[in-house]
């Protein structure tokens, strides 16, 4: 590598951003609600239904076998899914010019959020629904802490990079940026995504130089992700106890 870090500034000389995060009871409640919704969805169970409605899961005879259709989302066939509405088990329907039969109709149901539900999750120390909410509250406080430490570490890396002294070879930068774009492709290449890509690329590029490593990580995505984590690890350790929450549990 022709580019290199000439002199890195000590973190303690950087003007650190305010790292006190306000977390309200509502923020945590929102996270808990979202999780409960997702947990309920993943613990859905099936019940038989009389008549096909939107959201029914219908088993249809199809050619010489059977297929399942989740009615109303049109992954199968819009016309067929419309025509299925109101059908009962044994009714016939035309699919691609062929008569097929409704074999079964089911609906997914959500479990009740109660102590039994909480127990079924088999989490340590959780035997009631109230325990489960406390468990989630602690989980999210810990999760937020980790997320913010990562977020600020990335931000502080950029400050550190600006204050440090580098030798940069522009041809090398150009060549690596091309590699980078191949590694993190977007669906559309517009002006906005290009600006975003450049910002992300330069962070990654300087992280690599800060570690004094060669550019192999730009050829292998798993190495690249690991390299980024290695580069910000010292900053994470430096700010670990500096990221604080102002959080009041009680109203």
């Amino acid at each position: 590598m022709k580019s290199r870090l000439v002199k890195g500034v000590d973190y303690k000389y950087l003007t650190l951003p305010n790292m006190t995060i306000e977390i309200t009871k509502e923020d945590i409640e929102h996270e808990i609600e979202t999780t409960l919704k997702a947990e309920r969805l993943s613990h859905r169970y099936f019940v038989e239904e009389e008549v096909v409605e939107k959201d029914s899961i219908v088993e249809l005879s199809h050619n010489d076998g059977e297929i399942m259709v989740h009615v109303g989302y049109f992954y199968f066939d819009e016309t067929v899914e419309h025509n299925l509405l109101g059908k009962k088990v044994g009714d016939e329907i035309l699919v691609n010019g062929k008569t097929e039969k409704v074999l079964s109709i089911k609906k997914r149901c959500l479990p009740d959020l109660d102590d039994d539900f909480a127990k079924s999750l088999m989490l340590e120390g959780v035997s009631t629904f109230s325990d489960y909410k406390t468990y989630l509250e602690n989980y999210f406080l810990d999760f937020y802490h980790k997320e913010y430490v990562l977020y600020f570490a990335m931000e502080i890396f950029d400050l550190w990079q600006e204050e440090s002294l580098w030798e940069i070879d522009n041809d090398e930068v150009e060549a690596l940026f091309l590699k980078y774009r191949g590694m993190y492709p977007w669906s559309e290449e517009d002006e906005e995504s290009l600006v975003y890509q450049k910002e992300e690329f330069f962070s990654m590029f300087y992280m690599m130089l800060s570690l004094g490593e060669e550019d192999e990580c730009f050829s292998k995505i798993s190495e690249c992700e690991k390299m980024m984590m290695r580069a910000i690890e010292p900053i994470k350790a430096f700010i670990e106890d500096k990221v604080e929450f102002s959080w009041q549990k009680e109203d």
Binding site: P185, S219, I221, S222, E225
Partner: peptide, 15 residues
Amino acid sequence: VDECPKTSDEFRVDG
């Protein structure tokens, strides 16, 4: 890709 290097390598995930 960071947690599953073996699988990522098998699939030659380079993007």
